[in-house]
Structure formats: structure tokens, C-alpha cells
């Protein structure tokens, strides 16, 4: 018997996003690090912080640790992003 069956998936397409403009240089910039706070990330971001400042002339490194590593960043962290020149987030581990 011929059947007509329905698609069970979410067929809606998410709104398309565009990349932010890239930077000419890291020198003198403010970089925000958003850490999920999982084991090991502290050491990783500490090295990253030092390398960004010492080797690439980054003026400010601001580290924020999420309250919940399985959720998007807390609203107060998201509110800070607009004041930064770039963001490094992680770790997906």
C-alpha cells in the first residue's frame, strides 16, 4: 500500500551569519578569552595570555570563566564582548 509520510526533522534553516571584519594586527589590542573553566583550561589560557602579550604585543588580555561549561557564556560576559577587539573561546574538550 502506497504511503505518504512526513519529514520528522526541523526543516527551518537558521538565519545566516557573517564573519566580523578581521584585524590588521594584534598589537595594542584588547583580547577577551572566554574559558569554559574545565580542568586544564586554566593552564592553557595562562600560556595563551602570556604569549599574546609577550610575543604579539597585545595590550590587554581579559579572561572570563563561564559559570557553566555546557552552556553559552553568561549574559554579563556577552555584554563585555563589544568592548573587546577579538575573542578566543574554548576549550571544546
Amino acid at each position: 500500500m502506497q504511503l505518504q509520510v512526513l519529514d520528522p526533522t526541523n526543516e527551518a534553516i537558521p538565519p545566516f551569519g557573517e564573519l566580523a571584519p578581521r584585524l590588521n594586527s594584534l598589537a595594542g589590542k584588547t583580547v577577551g578569552l572566554i574559558s569554559n573553566g574545565k580542568e586544564g583550561t586554566k593552564g592553557f589560557f595562562a600560556h595563551l595570555d602570556r604569549m599574546l602579550r609577550d610575543d604579539h604585543g597585545v595590550a590587554n588580555v581579559i579572561t572570563r570563566v563561564k559559570s557553566n561549561y555546557s552552556a553559552p557564556a553568561d549574559p554579563h560576559i556577552v555584554a563585555e564582548i563589544a568592548g573587546w577587539d577579538a575573542v578566543v573561546s574554548g576549550l571544546g574538550d
Binding site: 500500500m1 502506497q2 504511503l3 505518504q4 509520510v5 512526513l6 519529514d7 520528522p8 526533522t9 526543516e11
Partner: peptide, 24 residues
């Protein structure tokens, strides 16, 4: 009025294969 895409399949067995093949 249902909005979902529809598929025509020959029978209940073909329906199984469609859903398995699509990871549904």
C-alpha cells in the same frame, strides 16, 4: 495544514528504509 515535507513510499517496509537511511 501540515508544513512538513512529504515522501511517497511503496509500503511500510520502504518507510523503514527511508527513515533508517536518513538517520531519522
Amino acid at each position: 495544514q501540515l508544513a512538513s515535507r512529504t515522501y511517497d513510499v511503496a509500503d511500510v517496509w520502504a518507510a523503514q528504509e527511508l527513515y533508517h537511511a536518513n538517520g531519522w
